[in-house]
Simulated assay, not measured.
Amino acid sequence: MSKPKIAVVIGSLRKDSFNRQLAGAVEKLAGDRFEFTEAGIGGLPLYNQDQDADFPAAGLAFKQQIEAADALLIVTPEYNRSVPGVLKNAIDTGSRPAGKNSFAGKYAAVIGTSQGAHGTVSAQQHLRNVLSAVNVAVLPQPEIALQFKEGLIDAEGNIADERTRKFLQGFLDRFEAWIRRPA
Score class of each variant (00 low, 15 high):
Pro45Gln: 06
Ile6Arg: 11
Ser122Glu: 03
Leu44Gly: 12
Val8Thr: 15
Ser17Phe: 09
Phe36Trp: 12
Ala90Gly: 04
Ile74Thr: 04
Pro77Asn: 13
Gly42Phe: 05
Thr93Met: 02
Asp50Ser: 13
Arg128Gln: 15
Pro4Met: 12
Lys106Gln: 11
Leu152Thr: 02
Ala7Ile: 01
Ser82Lys: 14
Val110Gly: 01
Lys166Tyr: 00
Lys166Thr: 13
Lys63Asn: 14
Ile144Val: 15
Ile66Arg: 01
Gln115Trp: 12
Ala183Tyr: 09
Pro140Gln: 09
Gln49His: 04
Gln141Val: 07
Asp52Cys: 07
Phe175Leu: 13
Gly94Cys: 10
Asn101Thr: 09
Val26Phe: 05
Ala90Cys: 05
Pro140Glu: 12
Ala90Asp: 03
Ala61Lys: 10
Asn101Ala: 03
Ala145Val: 00
Arg174Ser: 08
Asn89Val: 07
Ala53Thr: 08
Lys3Asn: 07
Pro56Glu: 06
Leu73Tyr: 00
Asp16Phe: 13
Val110Ile: 15
Leu13Pro: 01
Ile159Gln: 03
Asp154Lys: 04
Asp154Trp: 03
Tyr79Ile: 12
Ala117Arg: 10
Gln49Arg: 02
Arg20Val: 02
Thr164Trp: 06
Arg181Asn: 01
Ala7Tyr: 06
Ala155Trp: 07
Leu46Phe: 15
Tyr47Asn: 07
Leu172Asp: 07
Lys15Thr: 04
Ala57Met: 01
Leu168Gly: 04
Gly43Tyr: 05
Met1Leu: 10
Leu72Gln: 05
Ser122Arg: 15
Ala71Asn: 08
Arg180Trp: 09
Phe62Gly: 10
Ala90Pro: 14
Ala58Glu: 13
Glu156Trp: 04
Lys63Tyr: 03
Asn80Lys: 02
Asn48Lys: 10
Ala123His: 02
Pro84Ala: 12
Lys166Ser: 12
Gln125Pro: 00
Arg20Trp: 02
Ser2Gln: 11
Asn158Phe: 09
Ala23His: 04
Gln125Tyr: 12
Gln21Thr: 00
Met1Lys: 13
Ala25Ile: 08
Arg165Gly: 06
Val110Asp: 05
